[in-house]
């Protein structure tokens, strides 16, 4: 930065001149921390990329890390690296210690030198690396959150079964707390299953649902309309008293959507509209 712009930044020069040895030593130190959880080739590729983007800004202050325009590339590289580590299931500590390992490598490189200017530069560089280490922590956490969210969605796909309960009749029982994402997944899956199986009836059973708010209602309404456009009839069953009262107080109108008290009623309704009826054997022909 301006403070030593008039003077060559000795450390930067030193690092650039010894980039090859520095990288080798860095890979060695970082590799020791990771205890074989990454291949040397993999680690070397990652650290080389990091070193290449770090060298041009090695003389800068830690405070610039977040705001400096010339840190954009380094930030991107570091964020990407942290995400990869998060997905490889490494811990945040392991991830950050790869960055900190560079300190040791740089100290070794400058050990023999007793130039006080270089020493000051080293201290600045060291806090720069600290900031970068913190950045990896943040990026790592964000990436983990993303992984968890993805897993939630995948889990949803698994835990919301669309079942065929009769020839041409699909049912999806909704259970628990519905958030927007979850409702959407279920609804999309139901519509897709209607296409895949050529069914003409769908029953959404909400007996197990704790609350229906405007968002869930809107998803339900949209699904019913979409199913209709596809030539299928969609019935909502299992609206419990407390849910019914809440829906009414909220002011949501289900319009001409067919609702039934229970899943069994809804199935009977679907069968009837297909011209089928369930009768006791001893009443047949009576």
């Amino acid at each position: 930065m301006p403070a030593n712009a008039d003077r060559a930044h000795r450390l930067s020069g030193l690092l650039a001149d010894n980039a090859g040895t520095l990288l080798q030593r860095w890979v060695q130190l970082a590799g020791a921390e990771l205890q074989g959880r990454l291949t040397v080739a993999e680690l070397e590729r990652d650290l080389r990329e990091l070193l290449d983007t770090l060298l041009p800004v090695a003389g800068r202050q830690a405070a610039d890390v977040r705001t400096g325009a010339d840190f954009t590339e380094l930030n991107t590289v570091l964020t990407e690296l942290s995400r990869r580590r998060a997905r490889q299931n490494l811990t945040p500590t392991e991830t950050a210690s790869s960055v900190f390992a560079l300190k040791q490598a740089v100290f070794e490189l400058t050990e023999q030198d007793d130039d006080p200017a270089l020493f000051r530069e080293l201290i600045t560089f060291s806090s720069l690396l600290d900031s970068l280490g913190l950045l990896t922590f943040e990026a790592y956490t964000r990436a983990r959150e993303e992984v968890i969210n993805e897993q939630e969605v995948q889990l949803l796909e698994l835990t919301t079964p669309v079942v065929k309960i009769w020839e041409g009749v699909l049912a999806v029982p909704l259970v628990g707390t519905l958030d927007s994402g979850r409702t959407q997944v279920v609804m999309e899956k139901l519509l897709q299953s209607l296409v895949d199986t050529g069914s003409e009836h769908a029953i959404i059973d909400i007996t197990g649902v704790l609350a229906v708010d405007t968002q869930v209602a809107q998803h339900l309404l949209k699904t019913v309309v979409a199913a209709r456009l596809m030539g299928a009839e969609c019935t909502i069953s299992g609206i419990r008293p407390q849910i019914a009262q809440t829906i009414v107080a909220l002011g949501i109108e289900f319009g001409d959507i067919t609702t039934k008290a229970t899943l069994a009623d809804a199935l009977r309704h679907a069968l009837r509209s297909d011209g089928l009826s369930v009768v006791r054997r001893d009443q047949v022909g009576a």
């Binding site: 704790l210 609350a211 229906v212 708010d213 968002q215 008293p241 407390q242 849910i243 009262q245 809440t246 107080a249 909220l250």
Partner: peptide
Amino acid sequence: VDQTKLVTAAS
């Protein structure tokens, strides 16, 4: 009923 109403409002 009131639980459901309050939870829905909070939502």
